[in-house]
Design a protein around this nucleic acid. Structure first.
Lengths: 220, 220
DNA sequence: CACTCTAGGTGTACGGCGTACACTTGTCAA
DNA sequence: TTGACAAGTGTACGCCGTACACCTAGAGTG
């Protein structure tokens, strides 16, 4: 029954088509109907391969987790965790739709569990107490996902819309700009000139956190 | 035309009803139709007071920003920013639906702008260079919103579902648990016993970051 | 070989969503 | 008294996820 010309569907093909569609068109464009259309198939055909939309998202998230490089356990913990953080930000930059979906899943796939385990193992091997490992994990992940969240929300559309938005708000801007002098100085001045390098900005906060953790490593 | 018994609709009443509904039933339950029903009105009536659903969300976000205590400029900067961070987390705990919506808006209300301006002003008054103020802002907000994101996603539903999920996954757990020894030690051991205090956990990372910034204050 | 079983693709239909558009109706200014 | 206008209504459209019944090509079995 496979339409002879088409390569035949399976869960993996559905999943990667879904990831590709979300990457290219945004998560709000990922509907079962559009995904089916993309695969040259009728919407209901998808349900032979994924239970429902939510399960589709679970699988997509697991793909993203699979792209994150787990830290080595037992070596230079700071370098390992730094690489893992950078790797996570890169994955979330490739797949911005994943931010805000990854943390909340009730289904934890093996890639997810493997990564969590490796980070905790890395921290324990570095000499962090169990209690401190929890703290360290918490602060790192909050920062990483929070940064990715900010980047997603400020990043491309806002940059594209910038001229439009700026123009539309210019009239009221002129009126109220005096109320926000520091915003003017920092955003209107510095950022407008020097720009905003996400990768560099990310490393600033990351190193601040890792250095802070290093100092506390043997206290907990 | 106001249905004589009802207090008459206006944008503020619509907005606070929307916030209340999202708080109580979750953002996915906030549909124009349900909100209208809640207000004893037909769905289309809402459109006399808000342009569309997206504008409704803009207004709701502005309410949340209004609940965040802006830092005082010129006093003890660390204490002021600490309070602001705590105040932000509290607002996002009251309104979990706001996480992930606040950063991305293209419409910036006065409460939003005022808060941003105050934080930047506080940093500048503390002696941070413009460049360092950007870094400092970035790392703080990434952490704050990231923490709120994690809290939202782990927090109440997952806690409620915990028994269910644990039970359902127990059978495969037994099989694969050996693959994740550190997860077992930290989550199965420490966390299961000592629990997880969000407020305390938040302060750990927050103070780590603020102390780190203090050290860098005059370098940039 | 004939036969059944079944995995995978189809078509139809339902209830819910946001909202465009045309309408009624209560209020008040002139 | 009138007539304009703001606020609420009713209907309808095109999306969405997905339940359910159906078809059909090919693999497995006697």
């Amino acid at each position: 029954m496979a339409r002879s010309s088409r390569p035949a569907l399976n869960p993996d093909r559905v999943l990667s088509a879904a990831v590709a569609l979300a990457d290219e068109r945004g998560i709000e464009s990922l509907t079962m109907r559009r995904l089916a259309h993309e695969l040259g198939v009728v919407p209901m055909a998808l349900y032979k391969h994924v239970a429902h939309r939510e399960a589709l998202l679970d699988g997509m998230i697991e793909i993203v987790f699979g792209e994150i490089e787990p830290p080595a356990i037992g070596g230079d913990w700071k370098a390992a965790l730094r690489r893992r953080a950078v790797s996570t930000r890169e994955a979330l930059t490739r797949h911005p739709w994943a931010v805000g979906l990854m943390e909340g899943r009730t289904e934890h796939g093996p890639a997810n569990l493997r990564l969590h385990d490796a980070v905790l193992g890395c921290l324990r091997a570095a000499g962090f107490s169990v209690e401190m490992a929890v703290h360290a994990y918490s602060v790192q992940d909050a920062y990483i996902y929070g940064f990715a969240l900010q980047q997603r929300d400020m990043s491309p559309e806002s940059a594209a819309d910038f001229a439009d938005v700026a123009q539309r708000q210019m009239v009221e801007y002129q009126a109220v700009l005096a109320d926000y002098p520091h915003l003017v100085e920092v955003v209107g001045g510095y950022v407008a000139e020097s720009g905003y390098d996400y990768a560099a900005e990310f490393l600033f906060g990351l190193d601040l956190i890792l250095d802070g953790l290093d100092r506390l490593r043997l206290d907990g």
